[in-house]
Design a binder for these strands. Structure first.
Lengths: 118, 118
DNA sequence: AGTTCATTTCCATGAAACTAGAAATGTAGG
DNA sequence: CCTACATTTCTAGTTTCATGGAAATGAACT
């Protein structure tokens, strides 16, 4: 995912909602295994239609991914997108001064960023 | 600033807007010196009233701070709040597994986080 | 092929947010 | 003190977003 102002706004907007934020954090904590839509709906106590709306929103924003497994759809957090977003916010932090930014200290990869090719 | 779901939503919502995102990144790059409202308005080509609306939004969200200098109001990014937000998103990343999260590797402080007391 | 089950789409309603001109506020400097 | 200037508040109109029940889709087991 190429990170620019437009996609950053989409990602931030996707996270700027109580249910979607809880959902994304749930997936962040779930790790690579991810969770099926049904399990998420139960964990967050959301109607199917609402959850589907929020899942689609996060997917459009590039923050989560889906794969099929049996007849369930498994959702996982996209750590690469996450890192890209944070990097974008911090870009040229402090005008390039001796600021202890993640960038300055080498990329702060989360989990499988390298394997998944951010 | 204590970080919880509610304040994270506020912060993300504040950043999830083209002009405010540009504004925040401008202040991140400006560093500790910050910028006066007038200078920001010029840099971003925004009407005063609109800029004021966005500045208030970011301030309410705890992402920026203001101080007076002469007759100008100087705005600066709050790096501590920023780090708190990122940490909240990553909390318990991957269920505590051997995930190369910032937390697991020691706090990723940005600039003067220690001086400003996150 | 048929059936079941997980998930998504449709729809209407209600709430919240962005914009920008003009007027008001208030601080500082002469 | 009074003037000038930087910034904020007011106001109204237009757009965008969240919700949830019911129906529809569609993939997978038998």
């Amino acid at each position: 995912m190429e990170m620019n102002s437009s996609s950053a706004v989409k990602a931030l907007g996707a996270l700027a909602q109580e249910h979607r934020l809880a959902l994304f954090r749930l997936l962040v904590q779930a790790g690579e295994h991810g969770m099926p839509a049904g399990g998420i709906a139960e964990a967050l106590d959301l109607p199917n239609s609402s959850l589907s709306f929020h899942l689609a929103h996060l997917t459009r924003a590039g923050l989560i991914q889906q794969r099929r497994e049996g007849r369930s759809l498994i959702y996982t957090a996209d750590y690469g997108a996450m890192n890209g977003l944070v990097g974008f916010l911090m870009e040229n932090c402090c005008g390039g001064a001796d600021c202890a930014s993640p960038k300055a200290r080498g990329t702060q990869a989360v989990q499988s960023e390298r394997r998944k090719s951010a």
